[in-house]
Amino acid sequence: MSLNYTSVQWNKQKKGYDKILWLGIAFMLICFIGFQFLFHPEITAETIIIRATAITAFLLLHIILSIGPLARLNTKFLPLLYNRRHLGVSMFFIALIHGVFSIIQFHALGDINAVVSVFTSNQHYQEISEFPFQTLGFFALLILFLMAATSHDFWLNNLSPKIWKTLHMGVYVVYGLLVLHVALGALQYEDHLVDWVFLLGGFIAILSLHLVTGIKENRRLQKDRDLLKKDGFYEVCLISDIPESCAKTIFLEGENIAIFKYDGRLSAVNNVCKHQMGPLGEGRIVDGCITCPWHGYQYKPEDGKAPPPFTEKLKTYQLKVLDGKVWVNPDPNEEGTYIEPVKLEDA
């Protein structure tokens, strides 16, 4: 949880994450370069650098895009999500090497500026097969730069989580641009079926993961729409439906609500973490605080306030229990408003 600006808040797990990440990147690069020298010893150093960084960055992007939905589908993937930003920034630096080398190799030392050449050398913008694919990679790199430059919590706090999240959803634009960059570039030359199978296979895998996660989430929302309503309260579930120290989440009248059961009590807060909009309802009560599954941000369940010295606050909601059933009023209280928890003994 951030309080003051520090470059990176290292902890044991982040250090371990980065060690494995860079070991993995080195492993990918070494494997690719080794196979090239083994099967194509005629290759030049420049081509090796361009291709090795391209394939490493593109593979990393697939991993980055898979982690989010996988963590929603199975919480055991959460350790991969925790430090995903370092994965993203690492991917940007590898893509940057690819972009810079490609511009130098194919566009520098010519009769016009190298960057201008990226956009003007091949002018067949109206044709698919001849499209100047480098421009797509250029824009993808630009978006990746914006994301990497604003990846720190300093920018998250200053831009607000909503704007920050919107900016970082640009990763999907990047992915689209890069799929086209590869399809209209490398695969117009390397036209073996295997390459198309890999590219389309990766695209279908990413798309399927997101669809499955989306369908699962949508099913939950559909079910929640058919609830009984009385005096502003909706009947949500049985008390016994909520596991101890866990939450039942519900989407009512535009409010994303998490109802937590802990120490014989019930409290309801907004389901969206103030840090990176993580799903608090998929978290747990730890040391008396709601703990976000994504990065461990914590809030007190009764007032939605982060424990001092932290300052984040959540909206809270009125609850009541009737005949063993939990009812919630989706009309939100101001962020940080104390609501007396419903004591299950009394109920």
């Binding site: 492993f27 099967f39 194509h40 055991k76 350790p79 390397e190």
Partner: peptide, 30 residues
């Protein structure tokens, strides 16, 4: 979590060289 992530990483470290080998094998010769 540790055991699960370990299994995932082992899988990734086995699959990636295989994937890269196929990409390089089917590359147009220079």
């Amino acid at each position: 979590n540790k055991q699960f992530i370990k299994r995932i990483l082992i899988g990734i470290f086995i699959l990636i060289p295989l994937f890269l080998m196929y990409v390089v094998l089917f590359q147009k010769p220079f």
